[in-house]
Design a protein around this nucleic acid. Structure first.
Lengths: 159, 159
DNA sequence: GACAAACTACTCGGATAGCATCTGTCCGAGTTAACGAGG
DNA sequence: CCTCGTTAACTCGGACAGATGCTATCCGAGTAGTTTGTC
């Protein structure tokens, strides 16, 4: 059970986009250069964030990406769901109905499987924790000089 | 980010092993027949539970698997970690050090990356919820006649 | 100098390989229980 | 009746294909800003 690296990329990109909001929009190439990431593949991931309504894309020359709403209103849950998909990790295949369960009365399956319910409880706790943290919180936790460093590095890319 | 079906299989098998404790050990074939699962692949997953110390295997004729300790002392976290591996879903690749971060002083990386810390917080909430539930809790939540049905179905397999 | 057309730079979306992991199967080695032969 | 060796059933561990999803790249289509050409 492993999470793709697109989540890490997406969150760091949201952070940079929040710091360099006045430089917006930032192109894929510049954004990729800030973290030495493969530009084309990063673009694919950013497009997922656009589809989810977290970023907006500006086409044309000097185009790029910018945040669709203030950092305080972008939760980590939003980004994870956008990149990894909305469905939960555990998928119940209802094996309780197979084999020995085949002869059980149908009403016994009216309520959810106990195993699935337990896994769902854990999944909800995970989602609740992700939804409680925003990109603004990440900005507050970052080193004080990180924004300036990103801004300088970005200016060098433009020059 | 999807979890393999081995977790579902493992939990249901632990449940059956707890119900039919006096019939132990249960062979892979019989256990697989109770849920109509591919026997050989199920065995591979059960071996993972043995390596984790959740089950014990009895070799030889009339051999099979049984619980290594009482159901109340087997948490869902134990089973998930045994089947899916112990490492957490989010893996920080330290992209903060690449590109713009390359010129930052080394001491800035002494504490963990904010993004990784946030994801870790959610992961811990997930693990805490899994560790708080045991196989005994699953037994209590299951339908009252499910154990008897499993026992009858199992007796038919032996006959 | 003003306007329009062509041009450039960029993004979007899909199509396409390469790779890793998950799913599933097979086989040989080792272990135990049951059975049978011999004393 | 007891003992020992053989047979059978089972598990363990690893080795080996197929399927699925993730990583990564490329190309054509569309859009906005810029440049060039014409009046």
């Amino acid at each position: 059970m492993r999470m793709g690296e697109g989540v890490e990329w997406g969150l760091h990109c949201c952070l940079v986009l929040a710091w360099l909001e006045d430089e917006a929009p930032l192109s894929t190439g510049r954004l990729a250069a800030l973290f030495e990431l493969p530009p084309v593949y990063l673009k694919k991931r950013l497009q997922a964030l656009v589809r989810a309504g977290i970023l907006t894309s500006v086409p044309g020359a000097q185009g790029g990406f910018k945040l669709a709403r203030p950092p305080a209103r972008i939760t980590l849950m939003d980004v994870v769901a956008a990149v990894e998909g909305p469905d939960e990790a555990f998928r119940c295949t209802e094996i309780r109905r197979r084999g020995a369960g085949a002869e059980a009365p149908a009403r016994e399956f009216a309520h959810a499987c106990g195993v699935a319910a337990a896994m769902r409880r854990a999944d909800l706790a995970w989602r609740r924790e992700l939804a409680a943290q925003t990109v603004a919180d990440l900005m507050a936790a970052a080193p004080a000089n990180a924004p300036d460093r990103a801004r300088r590095h970005y200016a060098r890319l433009r020059g």
